[in-house]
Structure formats: C-alpha cells, structure tokens
Design a protein around this nucleic acid. Structure first.
Lengths: 191, 191
DNA sequence: GGAACCAGCCTAATACCTCTAGGCAGACGA
DNA sequence: TCGTCTGCCTAGAGGTATTAGGCTGGTTCC
C-alpha cells in the first residue's frame, strides 16, 4: 500500500487551499480525505476533529495575514503605511477567501494559543501604524479597534455582495475609505 | 394526531429564536423539527430546503434591522441621528446574534428578492443619515460604504472576541468609534 | 350525509458527514 | 531478524439533508 504521507501540516495547507476553492463553510474532513485519496478515518491520526482542522486553518491564515502586514509596513510610515497595510489586508482576503473566513472563527485564547499569538502579532502591527499618528492610550486602542473594524467590515461586506447594488467602483470606494481613516486618525476627536 | 400547526412564518420565527440561542451556524432543519415535536421531513412542506430556511431568517433579520434603524432615526438629524443609528445597529446584533449572523448570509438579489428589498431599505436609511452631512455623489456612496463597514466590522469583531485581549471597555471604544465616524463625515477628504 | 379533496404530518430510504474502535502491514531501530 | 510503532485501513454508530410516497382528519360541495 502506497502511503499518502499525511502530516498535520500538509493537511492544514491542503485544507486552506480547499477552503479557498469551495468556501470555508464547505471545508469538511471528508472532502479533505478525498483530496488525498484516503479514508476519512485516516485523518484522525493527525487532527483531533473537524473543529481542530478549522482552528489550524485559522491559525495559518492569521499568521499569513500578519506576515503580509509586516512586509507591507516595512520601510513605510504614516499615511503610506496605513494604505499599504490596508491593501495587504484586502488583497489577502480576495486571494484567499476561505482562509480569510477561517480567520474570523471564534477562538478560545485559553486552548487555541497558537491562533491567539498570531492575532496578537497582527494587533501589534496595527498599533505600529498608529505611531505615526501620535495617539496615546486609550485613544490608541480605540483607534486600533476602529481601523480594524473598518477594514474588516469592508472586505466582509464586499465579499458578501453588499456593494453590488450600486455602480460605484468598489476599488474607488476602498481608496476613499482608507483616505477617510487617515483623515480621522489625523483629527482624532478629543474626549 | 394533534397537528403542530406549522407555517413558513412560524418556522421562520422559531428558526430565528433558535439561531439566537445556539448560533446561526448551528441552525439545522432537524433541530427546528425537534422544537416543534415533528419529523424533519414535515418541514419540507413549508420550506424548500435548509438554505431557504436560512434565507428566510436573513430576510427577517434585515427587515427587523431596517425597522429599528427607522425608529432610531425618527426625529433626529446629524450627529444625533448617526449615534442613534449606530447604537440601534449594535444593540440588535447583541440581542439577536443568530439573526445578525443570518443577515450576513450571501444573498442572490435575483432569486432572493425579499431579502434584497430589506437590504435596500436599510441602505436607504443609512443614506438618510448622510443628508445632514451634505455629501454629494460619489462621496455619499463611499461614505455609506465606510460607515456600514465600520459598524458592521465593529460588532463582528466584538462578537468574535477580537476585543477581549485588552482591558479597554468595549462600550467606550464604540462611543469613540461613532465619534470618529462623525468627525470624518464632517471632514470628508477631498478627492 | 356522504364523496372528494387537500393540507399536514408520517414512514422509509438514500446520501453525506463526523468520529471511535480495532486491525494489519510496511518501515525502522535494536 | 525481530519486535514495535506509524500510518492507513475496515466496520460501524449516529447526526443531518432531502425525496418519495402514504395516511388522515377537516373542508367543501352536491
């Protein structure tokens, strides 16, 4: 019998690709086993269960997202950094819709520490952008939350088709949205 | 045999309640049938399939959301209207997490017209808020998209636990986020 | 009052997915 | 060369989605 050479890592990567193709909600253990030409039960030596598989994909996505954000921010500051970060974020979501959806999985920081670490790293990068805007706590945290909300909300609504009812180009609205975030960070309202 | 008195409307309402209790992703035809004490197959006289059930819940949610938004906006303008709208939005998401998740379902405007109508109504209300800020096209559309993205993103991340890593009160950040949106609408960046 | 109809629920059956228990065979260290 | 361990298997239980077809009690209409 020729072995498929399964490992948790290979399974996770294949699951991420599968999720990008068919949607994260259609990522199943069965479909993944089919892709490797093995029986469903074989996967359970490498992953604990279906939830575990999804968490692994989420962790991968959060890590990749943080990597891209880090690369985008390298050598940039202020408005430039913000725009590069924003585009990296949105591009990733467009290229990897399944992984991006995975990143929105509700995670338990207690047990799913690897995912929590990646999320923390991403948050730290967001905070780095704000250095150029000279915001101090608690404004900085509020701004991080607003910035992340706006970017996430945009790609989320775009993906769900929320912007299809109007002819205005989605890319143009995105550019203006990033502009708007820059504007508000430079004029952050006083308490 | 005592009949359960099923109708599509009763099923939809019960499904919405069920989704609020157990989460939209755990809304199943089986669980709904169990709640009415009937067999799964019995529901298929009233709903087409599981997808149809979910779309019905999404339509209900979008309608309720538009109703709440309309009530919040009545007699208000400018910053006041924005804050009332924002709070109505977030409160609905907190009270009805399952329905709110349903509202994010990817809908096909061609076939799922009732849901599309509700979404359009909600968008029109958002646009009404912007009248106080005197934005003209295409800025208005860009602003609608940004505003909706920010609010949706915030409740989405809050629900997924994205703000749990930091002690800053989530309600306070929310208030500042609404402030920030008001600020940017008043200082909308020129092209 | 009875016939015919229909709405509302049922049983039965298929198919897919998740997950556990236990088995076998090839690779690999002693 | 002999365990042993890893990696995959078979078997099977249990949940969900969905279709086909059947029974029954209430309604309608002569």
């Amino acid at each position: 019998m020729i072995r498929a050479g399964l490992t948790a890592e290979r399974l996770t990567l294949a699951a991420a690709e599968l999720a990008d193709e068919v949607g994260f909600e259609n990522l199943t253990v069965s479909a993944l086993a089919r892709r490797f030409g093995v029986k469903d039960a074989s996967l359970y030596s490498h992953i604990r269960n279906a939830r575990d598989l999804r968490v692994r994909v989420a962790t991968l996505a959060l890590t990749e997202l943080a990597d891209r954000a880090a690369a985008a921010l390298a050598g940039r500051a202020g408005r430039d950094a913000l725009a590069a970060f924003a585009d990296a974020y949105r591009d990733y979501a467009k290229q990897h819709p399944g992984r991006y959806a995975a990143a929105q999985l509700e995670l338990d920081p207690e047990t799913e520490t690897a995912a929590a670490d990646a999320a923390r790293r991403h948050a730290a990068l967001t905070r780095a952008i704000l250095r150029g805007y000279r915001l101090v706590e608690p404004d900085q945290t509020d701004a991080v939350r607003m910035l992340h909300s706006t970017f996430h909300g945009y790609v989320c609504l775009e993906r769900a088709g929320g912007f299809r009812h109007h002819p205005r180009a989605v890319d143009d609205s995105w550019a203006r949205t990033v502009d708007a975030v820059d504007t508000v960070l430079r004029n952050w309202p006083a308490q």
